[in-house]
Simulated assay, not measured.
Amino acid sequence: MSDISFDRAKQHVLGLGCERGTSPAQVLALAIAALQAAGIRESELAAVASIDSRGQEAAILAVAAHFAVPAVFFDALRLEQETPRLKNPSAIVFARVGCHGVAESAALAAIGADAELVLGKIKSAHATAAIARIGLQKA
């Protein structure tokens, strides 16, 4: 994994993106739906990751607190480096924040070069979620 400090025994990172002011309940519901869709137990989650402009966003911090994992944040330049590995790159997101995706990119960036997406971006009305894990060939 990257040099982010979190429990490396856990194999998955939840990437989140959201509009400012999105309700914590909406983002948490999306996070739970993402874990369920990927067949991942809450105990397998190592961290929640997002873009640094959401570093104080109540909804993202609430999700990390709910799962009792750290929240880690990356700048748009670092997230943009993940573009070749994204399942759902977006020119609209790039125009708004300077990278082609937040949820997928953040999940991948948190793990590092060995990451693979196990759940591409899913959406609610005002948020996105994706899940990455340490690549099986590297674990």
Results as ranks from 00 to 15, higher is better:
Met1His: 09
Met1Thr: 06
Ser2Lys: 03
Ile4Gln: 10
Phe6Asp: 07
Phe6Ile: 13
Asp7His: 09
Ala9Gln: 14
Gln11Arg: 15
Gln11Cys: 09
His12Ser: 08
Val13Lys: 01
Val13Pro: 07
Leu14Gly: 11
Leu16Val: 08
Gly17Ser: 12
Gly17Ile: 14
Glu19Gln: 12
Glu19Asn: 14
Glu19Tyr: 06
Glu19Lys: 13
Arg20Asn: 09
Thr22Glu: 07
Ser23Phe: 00
Leu30Val: 08
Ala31Ile: 12
Ile32Trp: 05
Ala33Gln: 15
Ala34Ser: 08
Leu35Lys: 09
Gln36Tyr: 02
Gln36Gly: 05
Gln36Ala: 12
Ala37Leu: 05
Ile40Asp: 10
Ile40Leu: 13
Glu42Arg: 14
Glu42Phe: 04
Glu42Ala: 13
Ser43Leu: 13
Glu44Ser: 15
Leu45Glu: 05
Val48Phe: 02
Ala49Ser: 04
Ile51Gly: 03
Ile51Phe: 02
Ser53Met: 14
Arg54Gly: 06
Gln56Cys: 05
Glu57Lys: 09
Ala58Leu: 15
Ile60Pro: 08
Ile60Leu: 15
Leu61Cys: 10
Ala64Glu: 11
Ala64Pro: 11
His66Gln: 09
Phe67Lys: 13
Ala68Tyr: 01
Val69Thr: 09
Val69His: 10
Pro70Tyr: 00
Pro70Met: 02
Ala71Gln: 08
Val72Cys: 00
Val72Tyr: 00
Phe74Ala: 03
Phe74Pro: 02
Ala76Gly: 05
Leu77Cys: 06
Leu77Phe: 13
Leu79Phe: 05
Leu79Ile: 02
Glu80Phe: 00
Gln81Val: 00
Gln81Ser: 01
Glu82Pro: 01
Glu82Leu: 04
Thr83Ala: 15
Arg85Ile: 02
Arg85Asn: 01
Arg85Ser: 02
Asn88Leu: 07
Ala91Met: 06
Ala91Cys: 04
Ile92Val: 12
Ile92Asp: 10
Phe94Ile: 01
Ala95Asn: 10
Val97Arg: 04
His100Ile: 00
Ala103Arg: 05
Ala103Ser: 15
Glu104Trp: 03
Ala106Cys: 01
Ala106Phe: 00
Leu108Met: 03
Ala110Tyr: 01
Glu116Leu: 10
Glu116Arg: 13
Leu119Asp: 10
Ile122Met: 11
Lys123Gln: 11
Ala125Met: 05
Ala125Asp: 13
Ala127Pro: 09
Thr128Met: 10
Ala132Gly: 12
Ala132His: 06
Arg133Thr: 02
Arg133Glu: 04
Ile134Asp: 08
Ile134Lys: 14
Gly135Cys: 13
Leu136Phe: 11
Gln137Asp: 14
Lys138Pro: 02
Lys138Asp: 15
Ala139Asp: 13
